[in-house]
Design a protein around this nucleic acid. Structure first.
Length: 145
DNA sequence: TAGGCCATCTGGTCCT
DNA sequence: AGGACCAGATGGCCTA
C-alpha cells in the first residue's frame, strides 16, 4: 500500500499541473486509461453536424478521483486499525471493516453499560430486554483474553 | 472457472 | 466554473 500511495500522490501532483500527456493508468484497472478518449467527437458523436465536439480533458479529473479514493482507503485503513482481530493483521475487506466496526462499537457500548468485559453484550441485552428470545453472539465477546 | 473484491474511468449532480 | 461526491461500468487479480 505504501508504494501505491506514493504513486497516487505523485500522479495527482503530476496531473494537476501538467495538461498533457502521460497515461496515468497504474497496474490494475479498468476502463480506458486517460487516453485520447478525453477528446471525443468524432464518429459516434451525437449529432453535431460540424463534428469535433471536445469533451473537457479527463486527466485532471481522473487524478482527483484517484486521490479521493486514496483518501477513502486511508480512512478505511485507520478504521481497520481500531478493530481487534485474530490474527491481528488479518486482511479485511471494506465491507467487513464497516460491519465489524459497527459491532465493535456495540460491544464497547455494552461494556460501558454493564461494567464488565465478560460477555457484556449478552448481559446488556438481557438487562435491557429481559430474557432474550434470541441469543445473539457477539464476535468480540467470544474473544479469548 | 466462478465469484468476490478492488482500482480506475466516467458522467451526473450538488455545492462553493 | 471548478471541485467534491457518488454510482455505474469495466476489467484485473485472487481464492475456493
Amino acid at each position: 500500500m505504501a508504494a501505491s500511495s506514493n504513486y497516487i500522490l505523485a500522479t495527482y501532483a503530476h496531473d494537476s499541473n501538467s495538461s498533457g500527456g502521460g497515461s496515468a493508468s497504474g497496474g490494475s484497472g479498468g476502463a480506458a486509461a486517460d487516453s485520447e478518449d478525453s477528446q471525443v467527437g468524432g464518429q459516434t458523436a451525437q449529432g453535431s453536424s460540424s463534428g469535433k465536439r471536445r469533451r473537457p480533458p479527463r486527466q485532471k479529473i481522473n487524478a482527483r478521483e484517484r486521490y479521493r479514493t486514496f483518501n477513502v482507503n486511508a480512512a478505511y485503513e485507520a478504521l481497520r486499525n481500531l478493530i481487534p482481530t485474530e490474527p491481528i493483521n488479518r486482511k479485511l475487506s471494506k465491507i467487513e471493516i464497516i460491519r465489524l466496526a459497527g459491532s465493535y462499537i456495540t460491544h464497547l457500548n455494552s461494556t460501558l453499560q454493564t461494567g464488565t468485559d465478560g460477555q457484556p453484550c449478552l448481559l446488556h441485552k438481557y438487562e435491557s430486554e429481559g430474557p432474550a428470545r434470541r441469543i445473539s453472539i457477539c464476535t468480540f465477546c467470544l474473544k479469548t483474553k
